[in-house]
């Protein structure tokens, strides 16, 4: 992976209490997460439940940077 794609992706999303895990009844918090695709991994910070660990990727992120990096990796 080029440094460019890594830098483009490297990012952090702080949910600031916007999302609440219904199972654990706690807000999702900024958590270090690894995003994996086609032998590449990106360290990022995304909202995740501090108890059960489920991670949230919003539509904006999914259709924006995530899709962009997927395409870039596929064309490597």
């Amino acid at each position: 992976m080029s440094t460019e794609t890594r830098d483009q992706f490297y990012g952090s999303v702080d949910p600031k209490g916007r999302y609440v895990c219904q199972k654990c009844n706690v807000p999702l918090v900024k958590t270090p997460v690894q995003l994996l695709y086609l032998h590449a991994g990106f360290p990022v910070e995304l909202p995740a439940c501090p108890v059960c660990g489920q991670v949230l990727i919003s539509e904006d992120l999914a259709l924006g940077r995530v899709l962009h990096v997927e395409k870039a990796l596929e064309d490597k």
Partner: peptide
């Protein structure tokens, strides 16, 4: 899926997908 709950199910508001796998460290 983004949705609201009804008595006997769900009303879908939006749906999206991606291929990356998110893993907690």
């Amino acid at each position: 899926a983004v949705f609201t709950k009804t008595e006997d199910g769900y009303v879908l508001e939006n749906a999206y997908s991606y291929r990356m796998l998110a893993k907690e460290f």
